[in-house]
Design a protein around this nucleic acid. Structure first.
Lengths: 223, 223
DNA sequence: CCTGCTACTTTACGTTGTAAACCTGACGCC
DNA sequence: GGCGTCAGGTTTACAACGTAAAGTAGCAGG
């Protein structure tokens, strides 16, 4: 009995799952460069080297993190309304990428994609095929959509400002070292559009997405 | 005279320019993680710390590299044929990004953009405005185009294969750990399309670009 | 009681960015 | 001509990183 209590007080053992959750949380908050084996271990009440009993190396850990992110994305249903399914999927991917910005450059680069990754790809292709796209157009559509979604997340992540108010300071700091009037068009669009109250770069996503979906619909009907 | 010869044999002094060129070359070949201050110094016949007389820190160096890449991009002319100008610019950006893959995640993230960066943005906005786009639609168009271009470069860079022949091995290695028939649609598109001789993922770029340009033309005419 | 395994710790190594101090040859100035 | 100043390098040093290698504590099964 005494030993049982001693056991209960013992640290709960690590699992891949628990490590991955903690790793994602850290990366979400501080970016990938804040994710070091030592700090991650510390957060879990463990030395860094303990992690290597559950992951071959840091890359293996990152592979696992990426597949968990893929798992957060809603799979498109297989119904005939491919447009609705693609819209929903696009928004879901964008949301996941903005929740986990560190993942943007990694989602497709892993040489050993996890099951959630493959299932996701399979479902998207299946949805387009079920919607009536032939193979070649499916490939076009998938490339176009993913390029746009990932690119949007990438450029949004990289923007040095978040809110409409911040833009003012940042823009001023950027342009300050240069003679006034050097970049008139940039200046105009910043002051007359981006810095206007209510502007949110995030809203651009839907505009581009609808334009692309409409274009794909045209291709779909032509085929 | 003897001293002159001694002088001539002396090392040519470093300049920002010379360092940046060497840094870009290294990064082009080995990626950003191959770019270390020590190796870069070694390549230039100098100790690592010597670089800090020309750059405040590594970030400053990377800022300079990014602006050189921006300088390689053809500026759009200001003529009324905005579509031609945008097409040419898009291809030029894509080419620059594929030459300098390390730059893709960095182009827009620098808090202190260089002159080539700002000039580039200014010229693109100017070209769209000259083509007849109003301010709001210009913002939409720019966001859409850049998201697509950067996203395409990102996804292409991240593909674990380059040639059509490579796909076979890589795909097999990827799917090998899973039961056959687990991902039928993925399987189909790989075998019946991607692995077919002559397929090149790079060709997808033009397809998507034309679709987007056509969509923008429609918006242009409606306004 | 021994054996061996699992989960974790300890120690150590090479590599990274970079702070701080030091050296050295060229140039301006009286 | 001598002398201070300084730009442009070198040397040394440090903390943080990923991770190899070896050690250890506690339990399971014979």
């Amino acid at each position: 009995m005494a030993t049982d209590i001693a056991k209960a007080e013992r640290r709960v053992p690590l699992t891949r799952e628990r490590v991955l959750r903690a790793a994602i949380e850290r990366a979400d908050q501080g970016g990938l460069e804040a994710l070091t084996m030592r700090k991650l271990g510390q957060e879990l009440g463990v030395e860094a080297m303990a992690l290597y009993h559950h992951f071959a190396n840091k890359d293996d850990l990152v592979d696992g993190m990426v597949d968990l992110v893929f798992g957060e994305i809603d799979l498109p249903d297989g119904g005939p309304d491919w447009k609705r399914a693609m819209r929903k999927r696009a928004v879901s991917v964008r949301d996941a990428l903005l929740r986990h910005r560190w993942a943007i450059g990694l989602m497709e680069s892993r040489r050993t994609p996890g099951p959630a990754n493959l299932r996701h790809h399979d479902a998207v292709i299946g949805s387009l095929r079920a919607g009536g796209f032939d193979i070649a157009t499916t490939a076009h559509a998938y490339s176009l959509l993913d390029s746009y979604i990932y690119g949007f997340a990438l450029t949004k992540m990289n923007l040095p400002f978040e809110t409409s108010e911040e833009v003012g300071e940042v823009a001023q700091a950027m342009l300050e070292p240069f003679p006034a009037g050097e970049y008139p068009h940039l200046m105009e669009i910043l002051t007359d559009h981006v810095m206007q109250p209510g502007y949110d770069y995030g809203d651009e996503f839907e505009y581009g997405l609808e334009l692309i979906l409409d274009g794909l619909a045209k291709m779909h009907d032509q085929a």
